[in-house]
């Protein structure tokens, strides 16, 4: 009996053979090896059987049953524009109102641009004055918060604590532990149920 060259086909070789890309050395082996020939024939038959399984469809009306429980996406921009369009085109009167509003908006925008171009110095002065007022208000607010803080009865204890790095570290660690415990407790309380629904009722 003539010895068959090379090793038997591996699962990867079978895949390559199915894809029509078997390496030449493996092809030589296959041509002379009855065991591998039977293996590839069986493989081909099994795959043909699987690929020949009958086509299947769900019962009639499947799409409607699904669509009855699907919320079609309504992008805000699309839905708002659609609503406006429908309302504006509902009657002659609504069309006239919509056109008037459009003219009013366009006219006021044009007037605003023209006025701005003609009063740039006034606008700059107004901007400067508003900036100064905002800065003063922020400074007063900060001073008010600081003086309130200093006047609190527990302020002296906080100062003492801040003077000792060891105590400060312990206090910070305790605060961190309390914060993390709170977060974990909230996560457990607010977790969504993970059990999935087995049957989607029609």
């Amino acid at each position: 009996m003539t010895p068959v060259p090379g090793p038997h086909l591996t699962p990867e070789d079978l895949d390559a053979w199915l894809a029509g890309a078997l390496a030449p050395a493996a092809q030589t082996h296959l041509a002379g090896c009855p065991a591998c020939q039977e293996r590839v024939d069986t493989e081909r038959e099994i795959i043909a059987l699987i690929e020949g399984l009958p086509l299947m469809s769900p019962a009639a009306g499947f799409t409607d049953r699904v669509m009855a429980r699907v919320a079609v996406a309504q992008p805000l921009r699309v839905s708002t524009l659609e609503l406006l369009r429908r309302r504006a085109l509902a009657s002659r009167r609504s069309m006239a109102v919509a056109a008037s509003l459009l003219v009013l908006v366009a006219a006021s925008m044009a007037a605003s641009v023209i006025w701005t171009l003609g009063h740039q110095a006034t606008l700059a002065a107004l901007g400067g004055w508003l900036g100064t007022q905002a800065g003063q208000a922020a400074w007063l607010g900060l001073r008010w918060v600081a003086s309130n803080f200093i006047e609190q009865p527990w302020f002296a204890d906080v100062r003492t604590l801040a003077a000792s790095p060891g105590r400060l570290g312990i206090a910070a660690a305790l605060a961190l532990v309390a914060y993390l415990s709170g977060v974990l407790a909230l996560r457990r309380l607010l977790a969504l149920p993970t059990q999935r629904v087995a049957h989607a009722a029609v």
Partner: peptide
């Protein structure tokens, strides 16, 4: 479908109802 076209939803169902059903069956 994301733009709100219901027909697009129906098309996706049409394309995949048979393979999905066959796999699940």
């Amino acid at each position: 479908a994301r733009a709100g076209r219901e027909a697009a939803y129906r098309e996706l169902i049409r394309r995949y109802e048979r393979p999905i059903f066959a796999l699940l069956f």
